[in-house]
Nucleic acid binder design. Structure first.
Lengths: 248, 248
DNA sequence: CGTAGAATTGATATATATCAAGCCTAGTGG
DNA sequence: CCACTAGGCTTGATATATATCAATTCTACG
């Protein structure tokens, strides 16, 4: 990459080279020094509602541990899943007092929290932090727009395949425990929530799992741990090809 | 708003108070001074393809005049509309050399263009510019996520109503010319492209215009200039209520 | 082992896509 | 100035994907 930013200080982005990153690569030791103790760690149990759409956001923070989901609700109760967050994703928007999303812990979660003021200070004082945050938000934007193609233009099988691949990329594969080489992905959400992300019903999600199973791509029967037999094929169905040209 | 950023220098965001904004509120006179002549204006005819998805982006720039659309294509030719751009929206991503979208001029368009290096310099040197850009991208992100609810959870009538309201908000109402008080919105896109934005076919778009017409909400017969009889009702159908709680 | 929530499966309904025809409308050239 | 044309729009008939409603069945957990 030879962009203007890259030429200057993009090395400082993904992981701060000036320090051994404490907590994670957003709040590294350099950032912590400027922050000077103005922070706290909050913990949430699985299922805990961290923020409510439209209400005052309780804090700004970066996830240290666990998985979180953000959803938007319509007036009549319809729900659209928006993002799955994992470390070091940011919860909250420094430009808004109110949360735009309902934010729910999907596992045991820890968040490194700072005040909006402290966040503003970091953004203002630290080129490194500012760049890293901009980088995160630009890639959030790209992912959200790619997701539009999923909801607008893909069939239910394609959508489900897309979600499984993205979850695998985001949360990683699980190790089976027994010494086999099989690929497992743990989906941290119910079929209903999968449906909320994919704009379809729980029943259709279930049926599409069955279809993918009959095709020999994966197995998910009644469980949230998915065994993947043919990851390449799954990527193809999803319309994702990370080995070559970026299709999505 | 009493966020950390607002406390500091958000006044400089939406319109620079230090200068009389030349061109627009992104490239104000202050920015121009730092830029020191390193820019050019590019013009495009309606229908011109400004950038192609996956190929090297020709420039970074801010729209000065006209309307532009960004679309994502799938391998098999399906197209998803992503954004409608109008002044002073930014074309291009300072962190990528390649365009993520196919970018098309919908009218006569002028773009204030600078090099990626110059863009990086502005981002680095000018807190004002940097904040404004972050602000733009955070609101792009919010709009993209709200659009997810449109594609994932709304019926075709609701989707169409949503699009009309958003276009009206973005591009503004047209004045009828004759002295009537009627509201007109000029849609800068064909039914097919409307469909690409809404994840539906041209035919369904057309049918839903007819439905809205039968309901007495608007009239669009065969034309891109839409007459709106009941804007409030349109907003209600769209699930947008800008006079009160933010629903979308 | 029993229970409750989650997941699957089936039958049917419905919204939207697809295919196909015809109709407007703006722009062109005689 | 008017008829012609091409692209865009509308409308209809039909097909199809997905939703909805309704039982079971599975799984994790007490």
């Amino acid at each position: 990459m030879a962009t203007g930013i890259a030429d200057r200080d993009v090395r400082l982005g993904r992981a701060c080279l000036n320090c051994s990153g404490q907590f994670d690569d957003l709040f590294c030791a350099c950032v912590m020094k400027v922050l000077n103790g103005e922070h706290c760690i909050r913990r949430f149990e699985p299922g805990a509602v961290i923020a409510m759409e439209g209400l005052k956001a309780p804090f700004l923070g970066s996830i240290v541990k666990g998985v979180v989901c953000q959803e938007i609700s319509l007036a009549d109760g319809r729900v659209q899943g928006v993002t799955l967050l994992s470390p070091p994703d940011v919860i909250g928007n420094p430009l808004h007092d109110n949360s735009r999303y309902t934010v729910t812990a999907l596992s045991e979660v820890e968040v490194f929290c700072i005040s909006a003021n402290a966040f503003g200070k970091l953004l203002y004082d630290l080129p490194l932090f500012r760049l890293r945050f901009l980088e995160m938000k630009l890639s959030d934007l790209e992912r959200a727009r790619n997701w539009l193609t999923v909801l607008g233009r893909r069939s239910s099988t394609e959508r489900l395949a897309y979600l499984v691949v993205r979850v695998a990329q985001k949360i990683g594969f699980s190790t089976p425990g027994n010494g086999t080489a099989d690929l497992f992905v743990h989906l941290p959400i119910t079929r209903e929530r999968i449906g909320a992300f994919l704009g379809m019903t729980m029943e259709t999600v279930s049926r599409e799992f069955t279809h993918l199973e009959r095709k020999g791509v994966l197995s998910a029967r009644g469980s949230r741990v998915i065994k993947i037999f043919d990851y390449r094929r799954l990527e193809t169905i999803a319309g994702i090809d990370d080995d070559g040209g970026t299709i999505d």
